[in-house]
Design a protein around this nucleic acid. Structure first.
Lengths: 83, 83
DNA sequence: TCTTTTCGTTGCGTATACACAATATCTATG
DNA sequence: CATAGATATTGTGTATACGCAACGAAAAGA
């Protein structure tokens, strides 16, 4: 347990022009909690992960992963070894 | 927080002819933990949910849901209002 | 029948995912 | 400059997702 899980919350939230407070209200947590998740301080519960995935209309696996996500640049260059 | 999350672990495990102990070893938890999840005593962490989904090769959303899953009979009859 | 496996339950301990409050920094805008 | 919004950080408290041990019941297999 306590294995680190990476996420794309910060990128998606920035792209959507959404503040932490706004996202926090949508998923029903404190704004600081969003900050903790984006910084990787701890992992979200399954409940919170499902709620965040629903907000961005993405499957959980595309938002949370045991392996770090490729950067935007890497993704654009098509070098991502991960879907 | 603490919203109940339903899952299909028991059904999938039975279909695979897998004991709780066997599943527990694959995902790295105690056998009792699997029992707690199947009974709905508490929700799994995101880490555990990702691991269980990987074992059954299913996306997280098809294994865990805020709404109860239709029974096998309902699914066979094609009356499921849920994917 | 005897033994083994599987499962349910209870209890106790620990780590962590939160809530909430306070403060500081930085930026943008009036 | 002054104010407001967004973010980082720290601290305290609580609920819960676990681990682990023990015991009993039920089912399966020899």
């Amino acid at each position: 347990m306590a294995r680190k899980i990476y996420n794309r919350i910060a990128v998606l939230r920035a792209e959507a022009g959404m503040s932490r407070k706004a996202l926090a209200e949508k998923v029903g947590v404190n704004p600081q909690t969003i900050g903790f998740l984006e910084r990787g301080d701890y992992n979200p519960s399954l409940e919170l992960a499902l709620n965040v995935a629903a907000v961005f209309k993405l499957p959980v696996e595309l938002l949370f992963s045991f392996r770090p996500f490729p950067s935007m640049a890497e993704t654009l260059l098509g070098q991502g070894d991960q879907a």
